[in-house]
Design a protein around this nucleic acid. Structure first.
Length: 136
RNA sequence: CGAGUCGGUCAGGCGAUCGCUCUGCCAUCGGUUUCGGUCGUUGGCGGGGAGGAAAGUCCGGGCUCCAUAGGGCAGGGUGCCAGGUAACACCUGGGGGGCGCGAGCCUACGGAAAGUGCAACAGAAAGGAAACCGCCCGGCCGUUCACGCGGCCAGGUAAGGGUGAAAUGGUGCGGUAAGAGCGCACCGCGCGGCUGGUAACAGGCGCGGCGAUGGUAAACCCCACCCGGAGCAAGACCAAAUAGGAAUCCUGUAGCUGCGGCCCGCAGUGGAUUCGGGUAGGUCGCUUCAGGCAGGCGGUGACGCCUGUCGCAGAUGAAUGAUCGUCCACGACAGAACCCGGCUUAUCGACCGACUCAACUU
RNA sequence: UGGGGUGUCGCCAAGCGGCAAGGCACCAGGUUUUGAUCCUGGCAUUCGUAGGUUCGAAUCCUACCACCCCAG
């Protein structure tokens, strides 16, 4: 299982196995978040999983982003950044929550913010993992 | 060329790379098999992939379940006429009224002589009436030589004033003590034929002097016609966990529950026997139709009929994007969630067609 | 996505065709040595917005806007 099914990094895809599918997947991340990255317009929560890759879930509330077109745009950009990001262990389940005002950003601004937050999150998760190993 | 009216079409294009979803064919691996297949994994080559409003959810249908959607009351809707349609509050044509020089545009446009109600304040009076100020005739008293003036009484009078959003047909002439449909003409109103039109309605004739028939029905209401309820999170199927369950037979019609409210009506609930029920999750419903395009025929038109042709999103944390290059008029409003027909609202612009007005030139 | 509801002063609200009650808060004055209490007065320019009906609309009708609730 370990490493055999690892997808090709340069040839990144985004199928169903890379997404959080059920309500229980989401609540698992919400209840036991191990790392978080917060920004004015976005909040990321993460928890390690036992699967061969990262998984992403998106929460873009109608309350925070009023128009459906803008909600779709935010989600598409988030998926795009996730897809192009490095796909290295430790693998985790990530939930992205959009905050109010995110629809005011243009595509370039939004994707640079998302890339920055993703890197921050990766770093924090690996720190958490190493401290956990020391703890054992 | 300028000003304007109506109708229609389009909704950035092209290329490269990386990605999402559905699907056809081929290969691949795995499960199952009655060896026909069938279900899934991965890969390759193709194909399809948001809108004119997808929106608001304001109407109308289809579809599903509740009884094959039944009767009455209540409630709601529509409201000039005719047609179109599956249906409509939509559309088309016509009529009345209003606006515009015009092309055209707007129009909740049935009934107030069936009934009930309402109209603050002001005003004499706000609807079965009315005399506040006026105006006029007469009588009596006072005053004056007299004309006249003043006061009181009894009448006539809706022409004038004043109030109000609204005051009991309008204008003119005659008439009168002053006035008045009191009389006449025209207009308005009402009634009755006639002519045209399917009808709404229009035209014309006659009659009625109009002490009746004011306004309000987006007040109750009356009249005509229409409407059962919920909604794909409907509903059907497969099914962990955990408990209150389901079918058959018998009994009962009282109570309770369900079918929006009430009354009927209908169904279930009670006992015995026998085994299954269905939340998480999954599958179906889920896209081929009141379908688009072209031609012909009928119709003023909305539209209908016939023939040919095309296949045009079906996701389920939810798919059309990102980056770069390039061109130009530098891209508005904005994202399907069961599906259609309308309405309404948002919207950068571009183009096409028909028509009107004004000026000028030929 | 579907169903339902509410918008009246800074806040809580009544009114449902004829002058927009009331309370809290706020402001001014008085009382008090000062403050609280108390007393008096003030405080709605568009009743969410825009049209319409009516002599007259917060109220009736139509369209739109904002917010909230329910179903999963």
């Amino acid at each position: 299982m370990s490493g055999v099914a690892q997808p090709d990094g340069s040839h990144s895809c985004f199928g169903k196995e890379k997404r959080l599918l059920t309500a229980s997947d989401y609540s698992r991340v919400f209840d036991g978040a191990e790392a978080r990255a917060s920004h004015k317009h976005v909040l990321l929560l993460a928890k390690q999983n036992d699967r061969p890759g990262h998984r992403l879930g998106l929460v873009v509330a109608k309350k925070n982003v009023r128009l459906a077109v803008q909600r779709n745009r935010v989600k598409r950009l988030a998926r795009e950044v996730f897809r192009q990001a490095d796909n290295n262990p430790p693998y985790m389940d990530v939930v992205l929550l959009a905050r109010r005002g995110i629809d005011q950003l243009d595509n370039a601004e939004l994707s640079s913010i998302l890339r920055g937050q993703w890197r921050k999150l990766e770093k924090r998760v690996s720190e958490a993992e190493t401290s956990e190993r020391r703890g054992r």
